[in-house]
Design a protein around this nucleic acid. Sequence first.
RNA 1: GCAUCGAUGGUCUAGUGGCAUGACUUAGGCCUUCCAAGCCUAUAGCCCGGGUUCAAUUCCCGGUCGAUGCACCA
Length: 495
Amino acid sequence: MSIDVQSLAKRRGFIWQSAEIYGSMAGFYDYGAMGAMLKRKWENSWLKYFMGLNDNYYLIDSTNILPEAALKASGHVDSFTDPLIECTKCGHAFRADQLIEETTNQAAEELSLAEIDAKVLEIGLACPRCKGPFGNARTFNMMFPIDVGTKGTDKAYLRPETAQGAYLNFKRHFEIMRRKLPLGLTIIGKAYRNEIAPRQGVYRMRELIQAELQIFMDPDTFSDELDLKEMDGQDIQVQLVDMRGKQHMQPMPCRYLVDQYGLPEFYVYHMLKIQQFYLDVIKVPKSKFRFYEKSAKERAFYNRVHFDIEVDLSTLGGFKELAGLHYRGDYDLTKHQLGSKESMEVSIEGRRLIPHVLELSFGVDRNVWALLDLHLVDERTGVLKLPPALAPYTFAVFPLMKKDELIPVARNIHSRLRDDYDVCYDQSGSIGKRYARMDEIGTPFCITVDFDGLADGTVTIRDTDSAEQKRIKLDDLEIIARGLHSGKLLFKELN
RNA sequence: GCAUCGAUGGUCUAGUGGCAUGACUUAGGCCUUCCAAGCCUAUAGCCCGGGUUCAAUUCCCGGUCGAUGCACCA
């Protein structure tokens, strides 16, 4: 029998559907005690890594509710919408613009609802499934509308992406942070999309968490400010558009991607950084990681370069998008300049420009799920081997048995460590069962107080990864704990 | 949103028109000097609404949720 990640996630307190006792709504998930800690630690690792790329990158926060005008300017009110027509006979809904385009070979994207209705009549469009007649076209916008104020007269929406918060705040932060480029603004927060058919667990949700870094920069000088030497001799795992169907991915030298494939140096530099994050911090096996190039047709029109970051997840049946690296150009700030009539132009050493945006966009829920998927290594017994910095609990402390001599010592160790780490104390059940519990929630180190140790001031410490044990002096506990937690000391280096 | 299938303690399941099965888990106890041992006890369940029936977890209708395919995913 193999461990089902979904039921482990539920049973051990990671994640499950929201409002369970009322039958749930599709696309909404809640985090339990373990899941919330795992998510927080993923976010912390992510922040530490990506904020560390530049001194001028900052964490900010912004509202989930945005005024209609802002989302009108960003294009979401109009383009986050699909015109639908429904068959009056079989009830099947179709994308009106696509159907018209297929039938007439004419672009229909710009047609209004009334124009669509007229066009449907004109060309005698009928339901491709049952030949039934179509009703009037209507729009379906993926944004959740909100009525603000007692009369609900201020129209607003739940934000469909966190990015807009950074764009709306750009001018003020540019001023506060002393007018330097590149300026990085990070937001970790909720975004909302009224998906037509949420599927595959946390992979497509209606309320999701995004971690996004928006880098505002001058495309002509940004590359010069990066340490491009880091790219020398480094390969990126990529699947380019023309490789599709032939292979999953191929290691391509950074230099090739710049010189031959024509990607901007700053873009490839960030590919490398993202790859290092996944391979070194998240510990994704190299064979399960790739950048997946989006074709001109697949990417949003304002993205000049777009690769998805994909990881091979067995629970989701293959390579799945966990993040995206988008070179959005000056599209966003230009749009908000038009919409708000506030100038988004900046002046740097005599050069005036509207900064361009390089967006690093991560789906947090998917990434947290990926941790469970990737690190549940023993499917039979359910051993989760999480990196110490990501595990919900870094340490667990047990008395070998529920005996009066052992309990106070174990309690004391627990409280010594608790100030600095997330530590679990457990004295219930056999020692083997307690180790197994910790295996399932990914606690990397278990400290056990036994009778031998009472005499000579030692405890045993067990490594989840290898299930091996070593005996350490209680006096060394703090320094060893610090080393193991940071990853600077490896378990095998003990003694 | 359409189609097919499904939904039983916390988890995984058996089964049924009339006291709902088992395992694991969890809690308490006994035992136990290191990897889910054993014994005793306890807690806990038929997705929601309506219908048929003396009686519905079971049959019927509608909904919700899930899996899969199609569609959708700027």
